[in-house]
């Protein structure tokens, strides 16, 4: 029944030039590498990840991370010895910031690791099966989306005891909804494509269609979303710690450091501003990278 629209000549060079000679990976890399903000984002994210992975080797004073007190060296302003200064018990702020990235990234990995598979799975099912499956999943998602994540996390950590584990659970409880929404909308479009109908006719199982046909087509959108998410998770984690509901001292956490350092503002600004800048730096990196990936993959559904 579809109106044939054959024979439209190439509107751009991608169609004019046979694609066979240029791989998709190369095209993606070409687009990415010519997008300066994306490259900056990627560099920042790599720095943050390197800090987290190699903290003991990078940090100037690894012994000063947690239970270390040196009252002679407390409240030292930034200097050659202590680039970010020292805190109220004499610990090197730079060292603690570098270790702090470990906590932040752990939070990101656990939260996204829990919520993405769950959210994606529900989104795929709602989009592909439709009917009551769709109604149940999507209404549930709507309800969950109506709850502000920070408020929910505050409630959960307040009820349970405040620690890193509970903070991660609290954030994950609502995080999947965004992925369900995203994957649902992509799947709805994909399922009308002929390759899905073809798989049905060829006798493929529902599991095959969900995970082998539909899921691979969602991967670029998920990776963009996950990258953008990372920044938000870091921010929410830091907010919880700032409020004393997340990671507890003396564990080096960026949010906690900002909170503790805030007592000494404005004179001893480095104690809160430096960790604050570190949070900003990481979030900026993930957001720039996420936007860059979005342009590169040309996905539109992602917020």
């Amino acid at each position: 029944m579809a109106v044939p629209t054959n024979g439209s000549a190439p509107a751009n060079v991608e169609e004019a030039v046979p694609a066979a000679t240029i791989s998709n990976a190369y095209k993606n890399w070409y687009r990415f590498s010519r997008n300066p903000t994306a490259v900056i984002g990627a560099v920042i994210v790599l720095i943050v990840i390197a800090c987290a992975l190699f903290a003991p080797w990078i940090a100037p004073y690894p012994e000063q991370v947690d239970n270390f007190v040196d009252f002679r060296a407390r409240h030292l302003p930034p200097s050659w010895d202590h680039w970010f200064g020292t805190d109220n018990v004499g610990r090197d702020v730079l060292t603690r910031v570098i270790y702090g990235y470990r906590i932040s990234l752990l939070l990101v990995v656990v939260v996204l690791g829990l919520s993405i598979p769950f959210g994606v799975m529900l989104g795929l099912m709602a989009g592909y099966f439709g009917g009551w499956v769709e109604i149940v999943i999507m209404r549930l998602t709507d309800i969950a989306l109506a709850i502000p994540p920070l408020v929910m996390a505050l409630a959960i950590t307040a009820v349970l005891s405040p620690n890193l584990m509970n903070a991660m659970i609290a954030i994950s409880v609502l995080w999947w909804t965004w992925h369900t929404r995203l994957i649902y909308s992509i799947t709805r479009t994909l399922k009308t494509q002929e390759f899905v109908e073809a798989a049905e006719i060829l006798g493929a199982s529902k599991v095959h269609i969900l995970f082998k046909e539909l899921l691979p087509n969602c991967v670029s959108a998920i990776s963009v979303k996950a990258t953008l998410d990372a920044g938000f998770v870091i921010l929410i984690g830091a907010s919880l710690s700032f409020l004393g509901l997340g990671v507890q001292p003396p564990t080096p956490d960026l949010g906690t450091m900002v909170a503790t350092g805030a007592d000494y503002l404005p004179d001893r600004w480095w104690q809160s501003v430096m960790p604050g800048m570190a949070i900003l730096f990481a979030i900026l990196g993930f957001n720039l990278l996420g936007d860059g990936l979005r342009d590169m993959f040309d996905v539109e559904d992602v917020r």
């Binding site: 073809a198 060829l202 095959h208 082998k212």
Partner: peptide, 18 residues
């Protein structure tokens, strides 16, 4: 009608597998 994320072999093999 072909899944852009699957190789030709993977697409052609679907009916065989099932």
């Amino acid at each position: 009608s072909l899944n852009p994320r699957r190789t030709i072999a993977q697409s052609v093999a679907v009916p065989l597998i099932f």
